[in-house]
């Protein structure tokens, strides 16, 4: 494992810690999209089915379990915690799941490496992860008042993807057999979705202000 990959994973992990910390300390999930959290949970469930039939390393297994457990944990807080659930922006978070889930499922059935149940589900998770942030970005645009932790959460999620691209470039040059075009294409799309957010995030940060969206 190279440093880019490790830094990417840690950035991903850190974003989840931030979101749990925000919910736990402020007992609020204001500004967070439950749709995005549900989509991420679906991503983890469909991708990490391989926990049952393949083993890579202790590191991978532990990280997969953390991602699964934390995504269910966040959803539990948003849905069932007495105080937290009252802070959810239900009226603003109107993005429909099927708009993303259906096209990703169809695409996974057409463009995949092998037409088997596990492989199609895995491919579906790759496509869905690429676009799962969209409900969150839409909510961000609507509510505009972004608190620091939510801004940082999205920043570290974006950083995770950017670091994975560096990891792919590194592995492309160091591992002759390392070619995964499908993952790269989805990853580029995913990182691209953050471009606009990054622009405003860095601008606000430079000006020493809270994140402001136009």
């Amino acid at each position: 494992m190279n440093l880019f990959r490790l830094a990417g994973d840690m950035s991903h992990l850190f974003s989840i810690v931030l979101i749990l910390l925000k919910i736990y300390t402020s007992k609020s999930c204001a500004g967070l999209s439950m749709k995005t959290q549900e989509l991420y949970t679906l991503v983890f469930v469909t991708r990490y089915l391989d926990l049952f039939y393949s083993y890579v390393s202790l590191y991978n297994t532990v990280m997969k379990l953390i991602f699964l457990a934390s995504s269910f944990g966040i959803l539990w807080y948003m849905r069932y915690h007495k105080q937290v659930k009252q802070t959810y922006d239900r009226e603003q978070d109107t993005f429909r799941h099927y708009i993303l889930v259906v096209p990703c499922a169809v695409l996974a059935l057409i463009v995949n490496n092998e037409l088997s149940v596990t492989e199609v589900l895995w491919t579906f998770s790759i496509y869905l992860e690429a676009v799962a942030i969209l409900p969150q970005l839409v909510l961000l645009q609507r509510t505009k008042n972004v608190d620091n932790l939510t801004g940082q959460y999205i920043f570290f999620l974006g950083a995770y993807r950017a670091l994975y691209i560096l990891n792919w470039i590194y592995r492309y040059w160091t591992e002759p057999k390392y070619r995964q075009y499908l993952v790269w294409a989805a990853g580029l799309v995913q990182t691209g979705l953050y471009a606009d957010f990054f622009y405003y995030y860095l601008k606000s940060w430079q000006a020493g202000e809270k994140l402001r969206l136009p």
Partner: peptide, 10 residues
Amino acid sequence: AKGGRTKDEL
């Protein structure tokens, strides 16, 4: 890995 799928990333 079949068809270039890399199973060692998260």
